[in-house]
């Protein structure tokens, strides 16, 4: 089952009551979600819709309400206000039915180090009321998919971080949920484990699972997600497909480094000069990258040559210059005003 790509831009809200997966069906509805902790607005006003069968990325700086949103959705936190629906079922009114359909893998692994991987999975199987035969089947399946067979009978306490994360995901997948919610599934993982995760996420989508995922790795979301929403200070500030978002901010990106570490005065001087060019829309100084200049320029312009002649005229060297189409990182920077590395601090 695959999603109908050509339908992607139609915001059709068709709520079907049958259980068949269909590309227009909405798997998750979040409307005007609000959650306060004391005086802090963890989630101010979040609305989004995830269609059946898509991978939906939730982005945003830390402490911006992503995890709280997920916890409300997963019946772990009672929202103060707002409508939450999973497969057309109200999360607040019928949490039991929602739990059946959801798999939630939290940011922190939730494992018992005194058990073996298999024992933990068997326990999860019992908590989801799978029969012994189903358990055998599903445990075999998740262990194989996540490449954990060799470790299944060892104590979880002896696992590496990547193995723990994989087993945690295996536990979330065990009951074959229609909707999988992944909070930072690849944070801090080694390349191998991350590769396994990516492959698995794509496989799951192909078998019809809807996936809601948060990540700090924008290139990961760019590669995996059909659509994304960017959260900032408890509200959705942008949403759409990565392609659309990139298109919407427009222009190409040029990164110019005069020296490896450019003095601020020189960088500012060049900035003034470049802003005079018609093709340059904006220039931002990036102090995190030795005062490099980040330019937004008109697509298909000869800005590189013009920049070089400007530097020559000012008698300044050129350490490096590169031009690219906007990335999701640029979208993020444009809408939140922060780059990811900055917001992580």
């Amino acid at each position: 089952m695959s999603i109908a790509i050509d339908n992607r831009h139609n915001e059709i809200h068709s709520k079907t009551s049958d259980n068949g997966v269909n590309s227009n069906e909405i798997a998750i509805v979040i409307q005007n979600l609000q959650k306060r902790y004391g005086t802090i607005d963890a989630v101010k006003n979040v609305s989004l819709e995830v269609r059946s069968g898509e991978i939906f990325g939730l982005l945003g700086p830390n402490g911006t309400g992503k995890t709280t949103t997920l916890r409300c959705l997963c019946t772990l936190v009672q929202p103060d206000q707002g409508l939450l629906e999973v497969c057309g079922i109200s999360v607040t009114q019928n949490p039991g039915a929602v739990r059946q359909r959801l798999g939630y893998v939290a940011q922190e692994v939730a494992l018992d180090k005194m058990m073996t991987g298999r024992e933990l999975l068997e326990m999860h199987g019992d908590l989801y009321h799978l029969s012994k035969a189903q358990q055998t089947d599903r445990i075999e399946f998740v262990l194989t998919t996540l490449d954990l067979l060799d470790y299944a009978d060892r104590l979880i306490g002896t696992y590496s971080g990547g193995l723990k994360k994989r087993l945690d995901l295996a536990a979330g997948l065990l009951h074959n949920p229609q909707i999988l919610v992944l909070d930072e599934p690849t944070a801090g993982l080694d390349v191998e484990s991350r590769q396994i995760m990516w492959t698995l996420i794509r496989q799951l989508q192909q078998s019809g699972t809807t996936i809601l995922i948060t990540s700090h790795y924008l290139e990961e979301i760019d590669a995996l997600a059909d659509r994304v929403a960017i959260l900032d200070r408890g509200t959705v500030i942008a949403s759409g497909s990565p392609q659309d978002l990139k298109k919407s901010i427009g222009g190409d990106r040029v990164t110019l480094r005069i020296r490896e570490f450019t003095p601020l005065s020189e960088a500012s001087q060049v900035r003034e000069q470049l802003l005079k060019l018609d093709v340059v829309k904006s220039v931002t100084l990036n102090e995190f990258q030795g005062n490099s200049l980040n330019l937004v320029v008109e697509a298909q312009s000869d800005v590189l040559a013009q920049t070089e002649s400007n530097l020559n005229a000012l008698n300044l060297p050129l350490f490096g210059i590169s031009r690219s189409q906007p990335s999701l990182e640029d979208v993020y920077l444009a809408v939140t005003g922060k780059c990811v590395s900055e917001s992580l601090n």
Partner: peptide, 29 residues
């Protein structure tokens, strides 16, 4: 299996299934 679990609606379980599920989850814990 996915389709089956979707039709498997939680609140409508009859009592004997509820009891056997309760025993299953309690035993596991």
């Amino acid at each position: 299996q996915l389709a089956d679990s979707a039709q498997f609606d939680y609140p409508d379980l009859n009592l004997s299934i509820k009891i056997s599920h309760f025993i299953q989850e309690t035993r596991a814990l």
